[in-house]
Amino acid sequence: MSRLIGLYPGPWRARYAAELRDLLAARPPGLAGRLDLVAGALDAWLHPELVAPGAAEPRPSPRVRLAGLAAIAGGALWLAMAVTLVVVASTGRDADFTVAGWVVLLLLTVAALGATPPGRARVVGAGILVAALLFGVGVVLPWEHKPLLVVPLLLVVFGGLLTITTLRTGLSRPVQVAIVGVGFGLPFPAVIAALAGLLPALASAPIVLLPLLAVYGAAWLFVGGLLLLDGGRRRPGTASSTRPTEVAA
């Protein structure tokens, strides 16, 4: 139950989390109480001025804030691409998203690398490099063989980047799984299958693709916002609580 307290911003938790945790232990909330907590967390994010500056936790490091900015920019550009794709497709025209797609990939890669703890950045960077090389091979392959390599790679790369970055948010593991599952695991395979012609009914109604594509961008905006505002600090009792907190000096 106290995992819901993890939804509150860091300065707020520093001030009120202990007593709220004690209250929830004495009186576990029902569904209405849980929804009230979620609404309270949203309210706390919208009104950071309510908590005295002295209670604030240290600011996130520039590295983590850069990751948050890159995630927000990548998510916003992804959403813009999704809207444009659907609008253009509904008019029966074609559009080239090569440059925008690479910019999104670059921004999300920066977000994932920035969100990775320094000790593991080399491993993640090597994984991204291997994926990029395989992607390059896929691009020059004859068209009939492209989907075999490019589609699984897209799934691995876009899903992996979101997973790596979400792990840094400090949310509880079930919430992290929900973000990646709803943001990527459900819609992405359907979109790729539709674009590859495996789901013609979906591809023939481009507007249906919009919410599927949009949730991926929305997931990045949410994760990026958390990193930017909160620095992905560990939360007591969450899966990521063993990771050292990286904050600015």
């Binding site: 009120y16 709220l20 929830l24 909330p29 109480g33 009230d36 907590l37 309270g40 967390a41 706390a44």
Partner: peptide, 13 residues
């Protein structure tokens, strides 16, 4: 009933 989120939102204000 008074929800915990409402209680602490009010206390903070």
């Amino acid at each position: 009933p008074l929800g915990p989120g409402t209680l602490y939102g009010a206390l903070a204000r």
